[in-house]
Design a protein around this nucleic acid. Sequence first.
DNA 1: ATGGTGGGCGTCCCA
Length: 268
Amino acid sequence: MTLSVTTWNINSVRLRLPIVEDFLRRENPDILCLQEIKCQNEQFPAAEIAELGYSNIVIHGQKGYHGVAICSKLPLTEDHRQDYCGVGDSRHISAIFEWAGRRIRLHNFYVPAGGDEPNRDVNPKFGHKLDFVEEMKALSAEAEPNTGSILVGDLNIAPLEHDVWSHKQMLKIISHTPVETDGLLEVMRQGKWVDLMRQHVPDTEKLYTWWSYRAKDWAAADRGRRLDHIWSSADLAPLLESVAVLKEARGWTQPSDHVPVTARFKAP
DNA sequence: ATGGTGGGCGTCCCA
């Protein structure tokens, strides 16, 4: 009895529905979490995705920007949407599902990118990002009794040295500044979250999930960053079987700049 | 050192 959960920043689910369908047919995860759907709830291609077996869908969309959704083969209950920073952005959704006799809450996040200048005095977007991360510190993996937790999403921060192509050259670049990386590690520490990707791949190995659209040849340059993450509560971490980063998806026709990341768990 | 690409929306925002 296995459980597979995928996270993917799709950068417009309507434009990229064909590759979402290809991915689901081919990889067939139990649950797909999407970020940057860039549509309102009623515009989400729910019928097409349900047709592939994902009949349980919860959406937190908005017009034009951001937006997150969970598409699941397993029934979803108790879905919640939290308005981080109280600005009305659709950047979080969570729901409960049951697997192997366990109750699990799944959180799906899209953390603000933060703009270009890493100084909150001149760049309010960076301030928003830091405030968002600060608010995430209150989210515990052990928040609900008898309930495990999984947290996925585009967190827009590459916390470790080998989560970026050049640690030294990235220290003043948003996504890898010390105030962000310290903040995200503190979210993990305070919430008792386990970084499942790094449980599977050692910290000393380069690991990326995003490659910029702006590179002439993204694969040759390979200047990636690990912006997408899968975390869990400590009780679920020992059940992790594998984590797969589908790098080839960056080379698909009309790709997202992020690739799907899938965690597989095995029941004891 | 700079500008590079991509999506949604609507004549510019965000990433």
